[in-house]
């Protein structure tokens, strides 16, 4: 359903951030996008959701297609209308609004009736029973995990076909991370929403996803089924932190360094 073909993204007309990124998300699929800081993962998501424009970024080459339609020149609100909603990094909320108002903002663009809105809210509360309890609280005072729930719930209110999740695990305790990803799987299974998940936590991302891409320095360097990636020796070493035989590596270890450098080239 989503096809990103060899895109190049430039910020402020000079800074080249993405140098040929190609990826694909199929119907109902969960795909994860891995990579170190500054690899261009978030930029890729923003290119898809159209939020680049407000940050002086531009897709200068390549194309982005969603359900056969080119979307790389649409505004963010048009793209949301098509069914792609991005969950921004750092779980930003409308802090001074209540939890329920936050959720309602997600459905604003659809212009649905109050009855329909109520039904959609109930659906979100079904996935996140905690939020029902806190519906009238000022969202800024919730805990990190609860805020993440609000943010995902708000995205659900848009009735998306594809959700772009930017680091849902950021700053959460391991148990909560597991919890959030279980809910992501549940949403995917019950509502059939496709997901493109950007993660630093490769471990949990590859457990959830069926397919994965690895980015370095603005390009995709590796891709494959989640299983294949999880068993790839390089991924194991660089992302999962499991060295061959379990011993630690140092930069004096030339072989290791060269292997890593090959990726960065």
């Amino acid at each position: 359903m989503l096809k990103v073909n060899n895109i190049e993204v430039v910020y402020s007309d000079v800074i080249l951030v993405l140098r040929g990124v190609t990826l694909e998300v199929g119907d109902g699929q969960i795909v994860s996008l891995l990579g170190a800081n500054g690899a261009g993962k978030s930029t890729t998501l923003k290119a898809i959701s159209g939020l680049l424009h407000s940050q002086q970024g531009e897709v200068t080459r390549g194309s982005i297609e969603f359900d056969g339609q080119r979307i790389d020149n649409l505004t963010p609100d048009d793209i949301v209308q098509l069914g792609i909603v991005q969950v921004l990094e750092g779980r930003p909320l409308f802090e001074h609004l209540t939890v329920e108002d936050n959720l309602r903002t997600g459905a604003l663009f659809r212009g649905v009736s109050n009855a329909q809105l109520k039904q959609d809210l109930d659906e979100v509360y079904h996935f996140f029973p905690r939020l029902l309890e806190f519906r009238n609280r000022t969202s800024g005072y919730l805990s990190g995990g609860e805020q993440q729930m609000v943010v995902i719930g708000r995205a659900l209110m848009a009735k998306p076909k594809l959700m772009l999740l930017d680091e849902p695990s950021l700053g959460l305790a391991p148990l909560l991370v597991q919890n959030i990803f279980r809910i992501i799987e549940q949403i995917n299974a019950e509502s059939g929403v496709s997901m493109l998940i950007v993660e630093q936590n490769a471990n949990v991302a590859l457990q959830t996803a069926t397919y994965g891409y690895v980015m370095e320095n603005g390009r995709v360097v590796l891709d494959g089924s989640a299983e294949a990636l999880a068993n790839n020796a390089d991924i194991k070493e660089f992302y999962l932190g499991i060295g061959a035989g379990g011993e630690r590596k140092s930069y004096r270890d030339v072989k290791h360094y060269k292997r890593r450098k090959r990726w960065l080239g």
Partner: peptide
């Protein structure tokens, strides 16, 4: 609500499809 949301965070408002 649209105005209240926009007043808090423009980029976020954009990302949820508010014009």
């Amino acid at each position: 609500l649209r105005m209240r949301a926009t007043s808090e965070n423009h980029e976020l408002a954009r990302s949820v499809g508010i014009k």
